[in-house]
Design a protein around this nucleic acid. Structure first.
Length: 473
RNA sequence: GUCCCCAUCGUCUAGCCUGGCCUAGGACGCUGGCCUUUCAAGCCAGCAACACGGGUUCAAAUCCCGUUGGGGACGCCA
């Protein structure tokens, strides 16, 4: 029984996006399922595009979704010596050679080939030059096999066969001395003892290029598993064009990390008909047998539904804590912080079934924290009429006298009033709801009133009454 | 252009490997209903798919071939 070791290896050239998180998730799940090791490795060998800021964003994103790593984060730029060392070994063993073709030249030849409808491939013109001590800029190329086939037994795709004739001698060391991706991944995967390389579909074509490098390095070849891509509604690979792709953007939009994770795991993986999974369930059931081979379209509606499910299930106190920054954004954060202990959690319970995101919840919570409230003017014209004013006044008096200001007895009081006044529930409930919340839609009226408490309820009711009296009959 | 991958409701998917249990199941969304003090939630119902063509077989969503369609890769990016 070998100890499973997997890695997530993002490059810090932008934000951590949804697709990256899914790749990380599947690696993480496999590691946890197998009680193996999950490594985080930052592939920053592109000096021009990698930034420290992007590294921080990746770390923050990983932490937010809870994908904790056992080793790392390693940074490839801290390991440059390792790659150079291995590259020189390959050179000495005759498995690599110096190439003095300039980047511009290569670019030109590539374009030419493409224009002629040929496969753009390095022609190998430096392969036999035998350059031992390059004077100017030179890159080191790996001697790729040209005969036979390379077969990959992919954990997800099954057997994939490549004709080695399509392989070209790829650069493993740039003329600036930095290794290229295809080389540094192999060196690291080899040195770190990675047993399973789980990565995006877009790397499938790199696999036959990397396998010979493992061999040249004298290292066993890991298992590979290539996950299908996530696409936007237009069926193209998910990118910035598709709006929110950064994980942290979902945090800001009021999503719960566990909802995002649950949504993502179902994008390409299934366990029968089950939709909602606890982390432990995912870990227990995860295997590559049930990973989908085909690409999946990202469906924001289903994510929203998933988030609503998790909001409903969560502890009110936890949601209340997470809600605070969102309340700040709608200007009622301070009011919420001043509320008595547990009050905000109580408010949360009223909206857990009514909000799909924390942003929605914060917006819905405004009338319960803001003073004075905003009144829906159109609704006021319709509902706060002089005809209803007497009933409202009676209700206000009874509420004022109510010994117990909690929802059940208040509802009794209310029912008495409508009976005495010969009204139907809705005839009085809607005007009261409007007076008390400023809106025509709210959680259960009596829960709302209980939450607001006697003073605020009565003050708002009286304002409503005043308006009703002024209003038209 | 070349190489590689993929193909079940609009979307995510079950079923495929190990053909009959499939009159193709579930979920999101949509539509209608119930519940109801509003809005939700919940419950019930409905709409909706095996890309196409050939084989193999008593029998194909399932196996094989082809076509078409989609995606990805062809960098001194990762």
């Amino acid at each position: 029984m070998t100890h499973v070791k997997v890695r997530f290896a993002p490059s810090p050239t932008g934000s951590l996006h949804i697709g990256g998180v899914r790749t990380a998730l599947f690696n993480w799940l496999w590691a946890r399922h197998e009680r193996g090791t999950f490594i985080l490795r930052i592939e920053d060998t592109d000096r021009d595009r990698s930034t420290d800021e992007a590294i921080q964003i990746i770390l923050d994103g990983m932490k937010w979704v809870g994908l904790n790593w056992d080793e790392g984060p390693y940074r490839q730029t801290d390991r440059i010596g390792l790659y150079r060392d291995r590259a020189m070994q390959l050179l000495e063993r005759g498995k690599a050679y110096w190439c003095v073709c300039s980047a511009d030249e290569l670019e030109m030849r590539r374009k030419e080939a493409q224009a002629k409808g040929l496969t753009p491939k390095y022609d190998g013109r430096c392969r036999d030059r035998g350059i031992t001590q390059p004077t100017g800029d030179a890159a080191l190329r790996f001697i790729a096999p040209q005969e036979g086939h390379t077969v990959v037994e992919d954990l997800i795709k099954g057997t994939v066969t490549f004709d080695n004739a399509v392989l070209d001698d790829l650069i493993i060391l740039r003329s600036n001395g930095y290794p290229t991706y295809n080389f540094s991944v192999v060196v690291d995967d080899a040195l770190m003892g990675i047993t399973h390389v789980i990565r995006g579909d877009d790397h499938l074509n790199n696999t036959p290029r990397q396998i010979p490098i493992f061999q040249a390095l004298g290292h066993p070849i890991p298992r590979f598993g290539h996950l299908s891509m996530i696409m936007g509604a237009d069926k193209a690979k998910l990118s910035k064009r598709h709006g929110a792709t950064s994980v942290l953007a979902y945090k800001e939009m009021g999503y719960l990390p566990e909802a995002l994770i649950n949504y993502l795991v179902r994008l390409g993986w299934s366990h029968g008909d089950q939709e909602i999974f606890s982390l432990q369930e995912m870990i227990d059931h995860f295997s590559f047998d049930h990973v989908q081979k085909s690409a999946a379209v990202f469906n924001p509606d289903k994510l929203l539904w998933m988030n609503a499910q998790y909001i409903k299930q969560s502890e009110p106190a936890r949601i209340a804590a997470l809600l605070l920054p969102f309340l700040d954004q709608v200007g009622v954060g301070d009011a919420a912080r001043k509320a008595p202990d547990g009050w905000l959690a109580k408010l949360v319970t009223l909206f857990q079934e009514r909000a799909r995101t924390l942003v929605e919840m914060a917006q819905a919570a405004v009338p319960y924290l803001q003073e004075p409230i905003e009144m829906d003017a159109d609704a006021a014209v319709k509902l706060l009429t002089s005809a209803i004013a007497p009933a409202l006044e009676k209700l206000a008096e009874r509420f004022q006298a109510a010994p117990d200001f909690s929802h059940a007895p208040l509802e009794e009081v209310f029912k008495q009033v409508i009976e005495e006044e010969g009204l139907k529930m809705g005839q009085l409930a809607q005007p009261v709801r409007l007076a008390v919340t400023g809106r025509t839609a709210s959680p259960g009226l009596f829960e709302v009133i209980e939450l607001l408490g006697r003073d605020r309820t009565l003050a708002r009711l009286r304002k409503g009454i005043a308006r009703a009296k002024r209003g038209n009959a």
